[in-house]
């Protein structure tokens, strides 16, 4: 179970997240959409404390943290229960594909290198990159790098995987393979929060779509409802714009 209560984040005088409440059941898949600069990335980054929220309460699995009082072990605890997939992949540049995936098992879980590598190999098989085990990130395509990034997140056995526009930095030719892997995870009931502009993905995979604007959640509903019958005028105008931009993927 994931629950955010009144999560608030300011950068200077600018309130980027204005009291966000959101909760997910285990296995639930949420897609977050909204105009750029609206706080979607900041929201994901607050959930695992890449940004420290200014107020609110976070629950991830069995850990509830009152943000202003969070101590470093709470922060580590939250980070170890969540996993993050970055827009720019952010693979460890000096480590091979296998080592990128095994790193957390060695450092955080304390597994032996041999055990961690054996498990990492299984993950490489699941993401279809077993033959790239010894390749360094610089030698991989964007799509392959992002799949390794997802593999690294899978290795965390986290309560939730947070995806921040995982396909936005990719050349169009690599988008499909990354979305396919995310669909595979969805089919395995992995809890996820996905920020994306891929509306077709949202329709197919999301249990619930959350529309954010100006640091707030404007409305949330299952995709069938939100896409066909948005209630708020801001949602309608946003959808008109993006659906016009990506017309071919919407039918």
């Amino acid at each position: 179970m994931i629950a955010l209560k009144n999560i608030t984040k300011r950068f200077g005088a600018h309130t980027v997240l204005d009291g966000i409440d959101l909760s997910l059941e285990r296995g639930e898949i949420i897609v977050v959409i909204g105009p750029s600069g609206t706080g979607k990335s900041t929201l994901l980054r607050c959930i695992n404390f890449l940004e420290r929220p200014d107020a609110g309460q976070l629950t991830v699995g069995d850990l509830t943290v009152d943000v202003p009082a969070a101590r470093s072990e709470d922060i580590l605890g939250l980070r170890r229960r969540t996993a993050f997939v970055f827009q720019n992949y952010a693979l460890f540049a000096h480590k091979t594909a296998l080592e990128n995936i095994a790193e957390r098992m060695i450092v955080v879980e304390g597994l032996s290198k041999a055990e961690a590598h054996a498990r990492a190999r299984k993950i490489l098989e699941r993401i279809g990159l077993a033959d790239k085990a010894d390749a360094y990130p610089a030698a991989l395509s964007g799509g392959q790098q992002q799949r390794i990034g997802i593999g690294r997140a899978m290795a965390a056995n986290a309560e939730v995987i947070l995806f921040d526009e995982p396909t936005s930095a990719l050349d169009p030719e690599w988008v499909e393979e990354v979305l396919a892997l995310m669909k595979q995870l969805a089919a395995e009931q992995q809890t996820m929060i996905v920020v994306t502009h891929e509306m077709q993905f949202a329709r197919e995979v999301a249990d619930r779509v959350v529309f954010m604007d100006g640091g707030r959640i404007v409305e949330q509903a299952p995709p069938s409802e939100l896409f066909t019958n948005p209630r708020d005028e801001r949602t309608r105008s946003f959808l008109r714009k993006v659906l016009a931009d990506n017309a071919p993927s919407v039918t």
Partner: peptide, 28 residues
């Protein structure tokens, strides 16, 4: 900076991040 964030995101401490991610790359 994304190297540090990736390390933090998988729950590595500041010291672990330095030792295993940042210093080896800085060495190069």
């Amino acid at each position: 900076r994304s190297q540090t964030e990736a390390a933090q995101s998988i729950g590595m401490t500041h010291a672990q991040t330095m030792r295993r991610i940042i210093l080896p790359q800085a060495t190069r």
